[in-house]
Design a protein around this nucleic acid. Structure first.
Lengths: 340, 340
DNA sequence: GTTCGTTGTCAAAGCGCTTTGGAATTTCGG
DNA sequence: CCGAAATTCCAAAGCGCTTTGACAACGAAC
């Protein structure tokens, strides 16, 4: 069933039917109802490809999914996607996901953009001096980034959380509890959030005249294995840390295993604060020792990003160009006074 | 830059350029090279929407992502998607993801199919008597399901793992170790895999004249919280179990917490076998007591499914209609002889 | 020298929709 | 009752691509 058949059936022109369907004012209400009823009965659906070709609008937003044989799927990615989806479904939008080798994200992004398959682009996992940003700016297609890119003038639309502030606050809390030996379990070094979180820690420490030694920070992709491994190394230092900052509850999972296996008690011998993306399957309050966390829902960010992106495409705006969300610092049992 | 401009630039007709690009034989090699070079220089990309409209092929496979405000994002979904993506990227395919309310998956699937946006459909989280199956069959569009639908004649293309066999074998192992009191922590009751796993357990027990009482099985969505909660209940039974079967390592995470908090030792007081989907962030060998598991990689399934689906669209076939993968039973420290 | 394949190219007809620019028809103020 | 404005509808022109059917041009075969 296509427009032509439908219009013939109704004895109307394609124009009128099309207008009736798309809510244009210049069509008689009675006619519109007749059309709508016929659509119901026949189950007619406009062909999206044709619609797209005619309007240039696709009703979809594009994103690149980094993937490769050795590449781990990231829990955070799935959670974020759910948030995007939750909002998209309300507007009858969908996503076009272009899987791409992590080494070719720029190329994949460009291909996605000029494929004509999407109205807007979304980009995450920002890095310092991210090479995708110049591309995006040159593309004349709406886009939104999750995070920011350290070292690049923030003159692009983004939504980010205050990573630096979060880890600054967390570090301050641990300092107030009397801790002086800190370690940081961070995400991959080149990622923007990792850079900023480290800055937060460093500047809080600096206020007390303390430093974060190189051998007390660890950059890695955020799996529990890596967390365990890094923590084990930290515990073997001549002066092991009493305070741990952790970029993810997933990393914390492994780190805590190392702590426990070393016979140490979390919240007594060692205090730990992790950043909590509110992953539904990994709640900090469910850890055997509930975790003190800096919290910001990844999923909520997804919802908001979809909202802005779709709004931009539909010209529902205006939206603020940039948003910086504060995180919450939630104290639970994994932090305590420094042992003496 | 579009075809028309490109062909004018080259002094050729659109036909010839199109053919040169799509590898048709009736074009002079020299001409083809000229065209290819011009494409390089101009960065011309065919408009996908137009291509789709003309050919009817979209180069994409569609899937429905269940999502709603209260709906948990599922780790398994992300992992599976990564597998799909890994294969898709090799063929320059992409996914169209339609987010949908879990209550309206049938509707979403139909809309996706007739939107003309996809060449093939993929469906997962199969249920018993799944209502999507009749729809899919009536749709005259290639599809593939992950899992099967208990109660429906398996005359559709699927890829599944031998859930029943896996849990039969696992149960047998525990029986051989002398266990007699079993509990099953299963996924949601209506899901096909849950039905089959339960069957596996029940039939292994039946061979020894044992039964699986109703109050010793628990159906729930697979989060660690639920695992913990269910396990706590089991441990309060008048005759608590010594052998636990668990449909996911995520559930096991919670269950083990309950076991530990009850002061029991895993692998001594209680034996546990979980199904392992090979989630990269949750490796059974990294549990404080390494887990005995039935293993089958969700991601590998994703790769294979994409391979079959894309192959079907491209007519690269023939592929087997149905595949049933065996799982591996891997013994680690969480299973031991029944306490006496 | 005519006929017949080949080979390389092209013009034009869609694919199913939106939208422009009118053309009928109705409404209404004066 | 007339002309103008408002209302309702339509024919046709794209959107950018693929594909069909035809047509030169050129040897080879008779």
């Amino acid at each position: 069933m296509n427009l032509k058949q439908l219009s013939e059936m109704l004895g109307l022109s394609q124009t009128t039917v099309s207008r009736a369907l798309n809510g244009y004012p210049e069509v008689n209400e009675a006619t519109r109802e007749r059309v709508l009823r016929a659509v119901q009965e026949t189950g007619y659906r406009p062909n999206k490809a044709a619609q797209r070709l005619a309007t240039g609008k696709a009703g979809s937003i594009g994103l690149v999914m980094p993937t490769a044989p050795g590449h781990y799927s990231d829990v955070h990615f799935g959670e974020f996607l759910t948030g995007l989806g939750e909002e998209a479904v309300r507007h009858d939008f969908h996503f076009v996901i272009m899987p791409a080798d992590p080494d070719d994200e720029v190329g994949a992004l460009r291909r996605l953009a000029i494929s004509g398959n999407v109205d807007a682009l979304f980009v995450a996992y920002m890095r310092g001096h991210d090479p995708r940003l110049p591309l995006l700016k040159s593309l004349s297609m709406p886009f939104l980034v999750h995070g920011r890119s350290y070292g690049i003038e923030p003159d692009y639309p983004y939504l980010d959380i205050d990573n630096e502030g979060a880890f600054y606050d967390a570090t301050r809390l641990l300092l107030q509890l009397g801790h002086t030996r800190f370690c940081l379990l961070n995400g991959p070094e080149h990622l923007d959030f990792a850079i900023r979180r480290k800055k937060g820690v460093v500047s809080a420490l600096a206020e007390r005249g303390l430093e974060l030694p190189e051998n007390c920070t660890s950059h890695m992709s955020m799996t529990d294995e890596h967390g365990q491994f890094a923590m084990e190394r930290f515990l073997q230092l001549p002066e092991p840390p009493t305070a741990i900052l952790c970029s993810s509850t997933v990393l914390a999972l492994g780190a805590i295993r190392a702590v426990t296996q070393a016979g140490l008690k979390l919240g007594e011998d060692i205090s730990l604060i992790a950043h909590d993306d509110v992953l539904p399957h990994l709640k900090p309050e469910n850890f055997s020792v509930p975790l003190t966390t800096t919290r910001s829902s990844l999923r909520a960010a997804g919802v908001r990003i979809a909202e802005r992106l779709i709004g931009t495409v539909k010209q529902d705006g205006p939206f603020p160009e940039q948003e910086l969300w504060k995180t919450e610092l939630i104290v639970r049992a994994s932090t305590g006074a420094a042992p003496r």
